[in-house]
Design a binder for these strands. Sequence first.
DNA 1: CCTCTTGATCTACCATACAAGTCCATACTA
DNA 2: TAGTATGGACTTGTATGGTAGATCAAGAGG
Lengths: 230, 230
Amino acid sequence: MNAPTPLPLGHSKAPSATRGVADRLRQAIISMEFPPGTRLSEGEIATRYDVSRQPVREALISLSRIGLVQVLPQRGTIVTRISTRHMMQVRIAREALESAIVQRACERFDPVIRGSIDAILETQARAASEGDYMTITAADSQFHAALATGADCEMIWQMVLDVKAHMDRVRHLTLQDRDSMRILVEQHRAIVDAIDQRDPEKADYAMRHHLMEILRDLPRVLAERADYFE
Amino acid sequence: MNAPTPLPLGHSKAPSATRGVADRLRQAIISMEFPPGTRLSEGEIATRYDVSRQPVREALISLSRIGLVQVLPQRGTIVTRISTRHMMQVRIAREALESAIVQRACERFDPVIRGSIDAILETQARAASEGDYMTITAADSQFHAALATGADCEMIWQMVLDVKAHMDRVRHLTLQDRDSMRILVEQHRAIVDAIDQRDPEKADYAMRHHLMEILRDLPRVLAERADYFE
DNA sequence: CCTCTTGATCTACCATACAAGTCCATACTA
DNA sequence: TAGTATGGACTTGTATGGTAGATCAAGAGG
């Protein structure tokens, strides 16, 4: 609280318990291990992950900021249910942010990262032909992250990650066939092509078209698993 | 962690200490009471606000997610310094999000909220002619919030609030004269006009033009207060 | 003068104990 | 039977003590 002290920086890489619990919980929620509506108890999670209640509590605070869980004071914590209204806003937000990213990418893009993207796309194409869902998903995340990093939009990418969590959760409910996987890769290629051509409008269109696809099956999921929705 | 239980809802409105500390700290940082680079200590803030360290800690976690503070494990917590690179991304993100909001507002907008906006603008116009900075700022926030709410984008507004905090902090460093206040109100009117006319392109342009204005004086501040930047 | 060690003193982190609110089954009452 | 207390078993919220890690200053040794 005193005078602005430089506070010298040295790097520490100790993985805190809070961070660990947050990551595990986040993954568990996105992967539907804890489906929407699941009641989470600080104490229960603490014993399960073998930490005290405090790190769990702090992890839940972070997740509640993203909107993955809802903390109801003195009453409990639940995994947030899916709402079409919320998902609509999530889609709008992600479209807006990622569209801005690719448009900026058309202005300037780190050539080194540009090179690494080819490798990502190749990995993804191979995984698509093999129907390797895990690799596809990982590469997809890497692709979008590389776009943001290359366009010098790392902070915006952090925001995208938050809304992306909601979309990933829905995507885990929709089975992906190989055709849709191949389409995914083609859409990625279209985005990169537009950036290479320095064509903002084309990049914008390609990205929005790509993101629109993801929530295509939301109505069907709603019909099948109404208990996941609110 | 069990079966998805409905978890009946009843309303509680207890203002938690954590929330209180978070709000006060947030305000203190934005208003430059705690300028960039200020060292914050959990214990010190706890005694100052007369709560224990735990609520303070949780509040700091929330603020660190927004990016207003940086928690360095085992070393300390500081109020984040301003970086032009970060502010560039903040501007891009806010433009993208609020542009999306007004474009959606052109499709559908709650008529009741539309009515309330006139009152906000009138309040703001009066405050502008009187040079009432506090009222201007409050009304500005209300205006943008009303746009988001009317367009049914409340979740997106939450995201905007986070990036807006950074812009508000910078704005606190730039003195506002009455002319720029009047311009502000006119820009708000232009946005509303475009929405009334259901003209997405016009609304988009008006919003981006409005937001661009805010960071106009950033270079000057950088020159004057280099110690606030990194 | 420079380098390294050492220990005092900070910090955030984590665990534990306690407080307070909510819900629900049960028993009591009219 | 219907309605209402009541007590206990949850929940999250808050307070506090202890721990490990980081920094820094003083001093020893070269």
